[in-house]
Nucleic acid binder design. Structure first.
Lengths: 213, 213
DNA sequence: ACCTGAACACCGTTCAAGT
DNA sequence: ACCTGAACACCGTTCAAGT
């Protein structure tokens, strides 16, 4: 009923308005609960209007996911520039930033990573944004690599390990799948640091008999 | 058109038939592409029939997710019994099994972990199955704990670290987000082992100056 | 160039009626 | 007890027509 801000004339900056309107709906009702028509009325246009800006409901979701990837890019780059001479700090800053982004925006993270959106097509806005975020993430790990920080594992594997750990922790936290784990800012930061320290130092007691190099 | 196996009489073991029919559709068209009516015709009943067995589309999805959790439970328990005296092997077996399950069934994993299904209500079939899988997973880590295998970190944190790493790697692999990474059985197993070894031994060069305990 | 509103095909879900 | 089929409200999407 309370159609918000109904500017009486015919056009505006829809597209962005649609994306902005979609995000809270996404958080409240999830992907399956979000409707194109609802979004149209929320932004005060008719139900046909969104299709001038998004060819598809999927296209809208992709635009939201792309925006998420760009946030991850930004957070990586700011961490890298802030701690250009301290690769370990940069890694921590980016890792915690990633963690917080996912925990604070579980539905968007879900859109980005869950495969609801078809295999990321090269060249699309989504594909570009995802590739870019990936690259910016890797740049941070390169920093430590160049500083000769890491052990004698393959560099790609080290990257995969770090990424897997942070991504996994983020998703588990976001989905509330770690029972009894708080999710306020401080708890998340502490847990992130702790788990990262385990990865950096190793889980095994020194001298335990395992045959890995 | 080719309505399969239309047994002419009025009832059968729907519910299981519906779940079985849903899984391939899920793999082909994703959650958003799966329809109740389609499932009904695929199993040869009218579109109203499924609602005698599932109150909701969500209920159907929950049943599928619950089945996934039970598979994870089973795989954990079999690993634990197979390597009761070798906690490290048990951990590896379960980890790789988890990895393979997620990579082979990305849509089901998605249902289980993505939060599309509302916060797991205690007492529901889904809630039971999820809690059970969680418990069975933890039992394996307990094995190593009791063998005094691990370093001086908090045990809960070690568990979280291992879980996060395996979950993250699984989801990244399943979503094809590790560029240039093969996903055949052998590659997945090798990558899983490698990454687990990094977690067990630590990422950092020994003696790198970091202040963690 | 962008938006409206009617129209279409198709959902999920319900429910009286059948067997 | 389980299934059918009509019915309802509501989707996503299209498109001629308006401004």
């Amino acid at each position: 009923m309370p159609v918000p801000e109904r500017k009486s004339y015919h056009h505006r900056d829809l597209r962005n308005a649609l994306i902005s309107a979609a995000i809270p709906v996404l958080k409240e009702k999830g992907v399956m609960g979000l409707g194109m028509r609802e979004l149209a009325t929320l932004t005060g246009v008719s139900h046909g209007a969104p299709y001038r800006h998004f060819s598809d409901k999927t296209a809208l979701l992709e635009a939201i996911a792309a925006q998420g990837y760009r946030q991850v890019s930004a957070l990586c780059n700011s961490a890298r520039e802030k701690y250009r001479q301290q690769p370990l700090q940069a890694l921590e800053e980016a890792g915690i930033g990633y963690l917080r982004f996912v925990v604070d925006n579980p539905e968007i993270a879900n859109l980005m990573f869950s495969g609801v959106l078809s295999p990321v097509r090269r060249g699309s806005e989504l594909g570009e944004a995802a590739a870019c975020a990936e690259r910016d993430l890797l740049l941070i790990i390169e920093l430590g690599k160049q500083a000769g920080l890491y052990a004698g594992f393959d560099n790609n594997d080290l990257t995969t390990a770090f990424l897997s750990m942070m991504h996994g922790l983020s998703m588990l936290l976001a989905g509330d799948l770690l029972p009894g784990q708080q999710r306020d800012e401080r708890s998340v930061r502490v847990l992130g640091r702790t788990v990262a320290a385990i990865l950096l130092n190793g889980m095994l007691r020194r001298g335990a008999g395992n045959g890995e190099r």
